[in-house]
Amino acid sequence: MIRRRQALTAWLFLTPAVLFFVLLFFLPIGNQLLTGLYDSDGASFAGLGNFSRAFRDPEVLHSFLITLAYAAGTLVVGTAVGLGLAVILNQSLRGRTVFRSVLLIPYLTSVSIIGLLWRNILDPQVGILNRLLEAAGLPGQTWLSTHPLATIVGITVWSGAGYTMVLFLAGLQGIPGLYYEAARIDGAGPWRRFFAITLPLLAPTTVFVSIIGLISTLQQFALPYIVTGGGPGNATSLYAHRLFLVAFNDNDFGYASALSLLLLIVVLILSLVQLRIGDRAHA
């Protein structure tokens, strides 16, 4: 009796959520599966044509390759910076809380601000960075025309370092302080302790941080859209930007649906890998 009442209550309370997730998640995804099988006009059945087209489309392949380069660059540099910050800020330093919070400001700042601000700072004509470099006797750079992708990686690392730091800080809390005491008694120096204790014991966190980072960088759209508009040429037209152009410039929703499903497959695989590793870490 009580069990039935509870079941009824539960489903009654869940009704809005069921409606929401069915109507705005599961039906749209199902719809994507169908749309991806049709031609751009939506009338004729294309089978897997849209998918095989993606693998032959030089613009899609280009966008995929530069997205991989962007993801790899962001991952390596961002992880190193985030880990370094976390290790430093895990010590008992005066002002620790303030530094931690300040480093998080860009993470909470609109991507429009970040993108526009850096576009101004990096501008070869009116930007302040080149003026400062020249004042220091260094050559100015045409950042966004000569090294567009690397510059976008740099801005991404700048805005994401604080968040990566927080994830690593959580991982560091899990390492028992006794290990460090023991190593210290055995005469291990700080670098030795970092490579022998911190790094190996942080391995699960590092994998977790890397996969989270990969999942978000593979979907990156707004930053290059604002900073470079995908240019110069298509040097920073990442996969998500290509998808956006196919859908809203070419109005080819069938093809865009197929491209979004390919993205879904990659993200699902990464998420499942992450779940498996998470399970093993907790077991």
Binding site: W11, Q32, A240, S257, L264
Partner: peptide, 25 residues
């Protein structure tokens, strides 16, 4: 309640869905 596990997994699974996938429909 019956169906709790499935419902919970269904909700959590939406974490994996990139916005791009549901955006077009």
């Amino acid at each position: 309640f019956p169906g709790k596990r499935i419902a919970f997994v269904a909700v959590l699974s939406t974490l994996m869905v990139p916005f791009f996938v549901r955006m077009l429909p």
